[in-house]
Computed example of a mutant assay.
Amino acid sequence: MWLFFVFIAIPLIEIGLFIQVGGWLGLWPTLLIVVVTAIAGTALVKSQGAQALAQLKNSFDDLRDPTEPLAHGAMILFSGALLLTPGFFTDFVGFALLVPAVRRFVLKKIKERVTVQTVRTDRGWQPQDETIIEGTYVSDENDQPSGPSGWRRD
């Protein structure tokens, strides 16, 4: 239900802001602002996305948990989509997500709501499929191979 509310509220907010800003500045300056924010946002997303990718690579190289760089990369990607969407409210949220402190705050709030559970076992590997039949194979170098592999069933 809340997603339905978001899909209704955001366009209504954007329409209201377009009417207010367009009435205050006029049509062409309003459209120019929308285009300039999309171009500036794209450049910022590109540079910050490259930084997030470098941090992700470093976390893999150092064998650290890649969760935080992945989350930052996802938020940067989402901010890019918001900045390319015409509107003032989406631009505001998109630019806000490009600020590292805002991303850290959002990630902190997400971590508070997510519970991570892990399961470990001390037992060795056991086949999951009960239809597996163990068998022994030996190389038959003296005889002609019975198949293309040169192996025969004992």
Rank of each mutant, 00 (worst) to 15 (best):
E141I: 09
A101S: 13
L17F: 10
W28C: 08
G41S: 03
I10W: 09
G87K: 01
R123N: 14
G73N: 04
N142W: 08
I10M: 12
G16N: 10
R64S: 09
V6P: 03
E68Q: 10
I110R: 02
H72G: 01
L82C: 06
L82S: 00
R113I: 05
T136C: 10
G26M: 03
L12N: 08
I8K: 11
Q126F: 09
D61S: 12
F4C: 12
F92Y: 05
T115E: 15
E134Y: 09
G150I: 03
L32K: 08
T85S: 05
A50V: 07
A40L: 05
A81G: 12
F4S: 15
Q20H: 10
I13C: 03
A71E: 04
E68G: 03
V106F: 06
Q128R: 14
S59I: 02
V35L: 13
D61R: 12
P66Q: 07
T67Y: 10
F89Q: 00
K109C: 04
L83N: 05
F89V: 01
A54Y: 04
I33P: 02
Q128K: 13
I110S: 01
A74Y: 07
L82G: 02
I133R: 14
P145W: 09
N58R: 10
L25N: 08
Q117M: 14
N58P: 00
R153K: 09
T37I: 07
Q144V: 14
T121K: 12
T67F: 09
L84M: 08
M1C: 13
D129Q: 13
L77Q: 02
S149G: 06
V99G: 02
L84D: 01
D143C: 11
F89R: 00
H72W: 00
A40D: 01
I110D: 00
P66H: 07
M1H: 15
I39T: 06
W2N: 14
R104I: 02
D154N: 05
T136K: 14
P86T: 01
R123Q: 15
F18L: 14
S79V: 02
V99W: 07
W24Q: 09
S149A: 10
K108H: 12
R103D: 00
Q20R: 12
T90V: 08
I15K: 07
V138R: 15
L25A: 15
V45M: 00
I10V: 15
F18K: 03
E130D: 13
T136R: 15
T118G: 11
L12D: 03
R104L: 03
Y137F: 14
V116A: 11
I8C: 09
Q51D: 12
K111L: 05
D129H: 11
P66K: 06
D143W: 11
L97N: 02
F7H: 10
A71P: 01
T42G: 04
T136F: 12
E130Y: 06
M75Q: 01
P127D: 06
L3H: 03
G41W: 00
R103C: 00
S47W: 06
L27H: 08
T118A: 13
I19C: 04
P69A: 06
A50N: 07
I10G: 07
L83V: 08
W28T: 13
